[in-house]
Amino acid sequence: MKPAPFDYFAPTTLEEVFELLNRYGGDARVIAGGQSLVPMLALRLARPEVVVDLNRVPSLSGITEEDGVLRIGAMTRQARALASDIIGTKLPLLHQGLLNVGHPPTRARGTLGGSISHADPAAETPMVMLAYGAKMVIAGSAGERTVEAAEFTLDTFETCLEDGEILKEIIVEASADEGTGFSELARRRGDFAMVSAAARIRLDADGRCAEAHLMIGAVAPVPLRCDAVADALVGTQLTERRIRDAVRLIDLNSFSFDNAEVSLAYRRHIAPTLASRALAQAVGRTGGLRT
């Protein structure tokens, strides 16, 4: 479990980062919190010639808010995001999702951008960003570009990042008057989900559902948006019964993950339950209610 030899650079500015990435092209990998890359290096499953460490670039970390728009630096530690009041109050779904990411020691090193860029289909943070319709700021030596979360994650472990580019920042618009819910089942707490579900609900003045979002994770290469479920909820008074009926509209045929340990049939069986729980939790938390 010793990595194959590689050259290591620890730049302190973004300019240096891009200069290195340009120089080494596809031979280089950036390392953020190292929670996925380090084991892959140790197992020699990843064998980059060059590792560029982003941990000493201060401009990549931090959480700021302006007019309800949050900007989260890609190198922001998961633990810091979890402890952030701004995220706790403005992006509660991210807070709930992060509670399911690993454990305190892994979150102390693991970063938000690292997790999103790794694009594990069972990971919580990409799903949360999809649920929020976040924007991903991608930077490279040629400058910056911004893509929608839905265009960022392409496939299992695959994003739209090109050689020489990194995820620099995540921009999320906070929605003040909504409730959020997150529900996941893993073999052990903190492990990769067998199925996860994330929900956002906004009610109108009459208490009817004005807006709904539901995501299901860990069942296909990219977390699934369940717009049919959301559409069925919008305009209605949300009851347990209504939710239970609506989650039947989850497109179970778009589930594809199947293995001996966690079969496709089992994932299809528990997904509606987890979706109901996430939605019910979100409804319970509308209007700032916390349950």
């Binding site: 089942l185 067998m194 179970l252 340990e261 049939a265 089992y266 299809r268 069986h269």
Partner: peptide, 16 residues
């Protein structure tokens, strides 16, 4: 005794 095996003990139908 995984969750899946526990569920299989009572039998289940997808989407039920």
């Amino acid at each position: 005794l995984t969750p899946q095996r526990v569920i299989e003990a009572i039998g289940f139908e997808v989407g039920a």
